[in-house]
Measured scan of single mutants.
Amino acid sequence: DETGKFLVLSLYDYQEKSPREVTMKKGDILTLLNSTNKDWWKVEVNGRQGFVPAAYVKFL
């Protein structure tokens, strides 16, 4: 199980638009929880879990 094993870097600021999403700032290091959807990845940032656009992050 690779859940929570990968870190990704936020390339852009992102403001959550729904309760299922999370806000991140450019340069944030996020824990990747799920990347099965090619468009939206589930991450943990600042103690919160939610989705961010996959195009806004990259693997470290």
Rank of each mutant, 00 (worst) to 15 (best):
Leu30Gln: 01
Asp39His: 13
Trp40Ile: 02
Val52Trp: 01
Lys25Gly: 05
Glu44Met: 08
Phe51Val: 06
Asp1Asn: 14
Pro19Trp: 13
Leu9Ala: 05
Asp13Leu: 03
Ala55Ile: 12
Pro53Ala: 03
Trp40Lys: 01
Tyr12Ser: 11
Gln15His: 12
Phe6His: 14
Leu60Lys: 04
Pro53Tyr: 04
Leu7Glu: 07
Asp28Met: 13
Arg48Cys: 06
Ala54Arg: 11
Val45Lys: 10
Phe59Cys: 15
Glu21Ser: 06
Tyr56Asn: 07
Gly4Ile: 13
Met24Ser: 00
Tyr12Lys: 12
Phe51Trp: 15
Leu33Lys: 04
Arg48Met: 09
Pro19Gln: 09
Glu2Met: 14
Val45Trp: 06
Leu11Thr: 06
Leu7His: 10
Thr3Pro: 13
Lys25Phe: 09
Val52Cys: 03
Glu16Ile: 05
Asn46Arg: 10
Ala54Asp: 01
Leu7Thr: 08
Pro53Gln: 03
Met24Ile: 15
Glu44Ala: 08
Thr36Val: 10
Leu7Gly: 03
Arg20Gly: 15
Lys25Pro: 01
Gly47Arg: 04
Gln15Pro: 08
Phe59Ile: 15
Val57Lys: 00
Thr23Glu: 03
Gly4His: 15
Thr23Lys: 03
Phe6Tyr: 13
Val52Leu: 05
Leu32Met: 04
Tyr12Arg: 11
Trp41Gly: 00
Leu32Ala: 03
Phe51Ser: 02
Ser18Phe: 06
Val45Ile: 15
Glu21Lys: 05
Asn46Val: 04
Glu21Gln: 10
Phe6Arg: 15
Lys26Trp: 04
Thr3Gln: 13
Gly47Pro: 00
Ser18His: 11
Thr23His: 04
Thr36Ser: 14
Lys17Pro: 04
Leu7Ile: 09
Glu21Trp: 05
Ser35Glu: 06
Gly4Arg: 14
Ala55Arg: 14
Arg48Phe: 07
Asp28Pro: 01
Glu16Leu: 07
Lys38Ser: 12
Pro19Arg: 08
Phe6Val: 15
Gln15Glu: 15
Asn46Gly: 11
Thr3Tyr: 13
Ser10Pro: 03
Asn34Val: 09
Gly50Tyr: 04
Pro19Lys: 09
Tyr14Cys: 07
Lys26His: 06
Gly4Trp: 12
Phe51Tyr: 15
Leu60Met: 11
Lys26Tyr: 05
Lys17Arg: 14
Gly27Phe: 03
Thr3Ala: 13
Trp41Ala: 04
Lys38Glu: 11
Glu16Tyr: 04
Ser18Asn: 12
Gly50Arg: 01
Ala54Gln: 04
Tyr14His: 04
Ser35His: 11
Val52Ile: 10
Leu9Asp: 01
Glu16Asp: 05
Leu32Gly: 02
Ala55Trp: 08
Gly4Ser: 13
Gly27Ile: 01
Asp28Gln: 13
Pro19Phe: 10
Glu16Phe: 06
Asp1Thr: 14
Ser18Tyr: 06
Trp41Cys: 04
Val52Thr: 01
Met24His: 01
Lys17Thr: 12
Asn37Val: 04
Glu16Gly: 15
Gln15Cys: 11
Tyr14Glu: 02
Ser35Thr: 12
Ile29His: 05
Lys42Thr: 06
Thr3Asp: 13
Val22Ile: 15
Phe6Trp: 14
Thr23Tyr: 04
Lys38Pro: 15
Glu21Asn: 05
Glu44Asn: 05
Gly47Val: 02
Val52Asp: 00
Gly47Thr: 04
Lys17Asn: 10
Trp41Thr: 03
Thr3Glu: 12
Val45Thr: 10
Asn34Asp: 15
Lys5Phe: 13
Ser10Val: 15
Arg20Val: 11
Ser35Pro: 07
Met24Cys: 06
Arg20Leu: 14
Pro53Lys: 04
Asp13Phe: 05
Val8Asn: 01
Lys26Phe: 06
Gly50Trp: 03
Glu21Leu: 06
Lys38Asn: 11
Asn46Ser: 09
Leu30Pro: 01
Gly47Met: 05
Leu11Phe: 05
Leu30Thr: 01
Tyr14Lys: 01
Asn46Pro: 03
Arg48Asp: 04
Ser10Glu: 02
Pro53Asn: 03
Ala54Met: 04
Asn34Tyr: 06
Asp28His: 05
Leu60His: 08
Val43Ser: 00
Thr23Cys: 05
Lys26Glu: 07
Phe51His: 04
Leu11Cys: 11
Lys17Leu: 09
Gly50Asp: 00
Asp28Phe: 05
Thr3Cys: 15
Leu60Ile: 14
Glu21His: 06
Met24Leu: 08
Glu2Ser: 14
Lys38Met: 09
Val43Glu: 00
Leu30Arg: 00
Glu21Phe: 06
Lys17Cys: 10
Leu9His: 05
Leu32Cys: 08
Trp40Glu: 03
Leu7Phe: 14
Trp41Arg: 00
Val45Gly: 06
Leu33Phe: 03
Arg48Ala: 07
Tyr56Met: 14
Gly27Asp: 06
Val52Tyr: 01
Gly4Phe: 14
Asp1Glu: 13
Asp39Pro: 01
Leu9Glu: 13
Trp40His: 02
Met24Phe: 06
Ser35Tyr: 11
Glu44Thr: 06
Asp28Arg: 02
Met24Gly: 00
Val57Asn: 00
Val43Lys: 00
Leu60Phe: 11
Val43Trp: 00
Leu33Ser: 02
Ser35Asn: 13
Phe59Arg: 10
Leu60Glu: 07
Tyr12Ile: 11
Leu11His: 03
Glu21Ala: 06
Trp41Val: 09
Asp39Leu: 13
Val8Cys: 12
Phe59Thr: 09
Ile29Gln: 05
Gly4Thr: 14
Glu21Gly: 12
Asn37His: 11
Ser35Met: 15
Gln15Asn: 14
Lys58Val: 15
Leu11Trp: 05
Val45Ser: 10
Lys5Leu: 12
Ser18Cys: 10
Lys58Asn: 08
Leu11Ser: 04
Gly27Met: 02
Ala55Ser: 14
Val22Glu: 00
Leu9Pro: 00
Tyr14Pro: 03
Gln49Ser: 11
Ala55Gln: 12
Glu16Asn: 06
Gly50Gln: 01
Gly4Pro: 13
Val43Asp: 00
Ala54Trp: 02
Val22Asp: 00
Pro53His: 03
Tyr14Met: 02
Phe6Asp: 10
Lys5Gly: 11
Phe59Ser: 09
Pro19His: 10
Leu30Cys: 11
Phe6Met: 13
Thr36Phe: 10
Arg48Ser: 06
Asp13Val: 03
Ala55Lys: 15
Leu11Met: 10
Asp1Leu: 14
Phe6Asn: 11
Leu30Asp: 01
Asp1Trp: 13
Gly4Val: 14
Val57Asp: 01
Val43Gly: 00
Phe6Gly: 12
Val52Met: 03
Phe51Cys: 12
Glu21Ile: 04
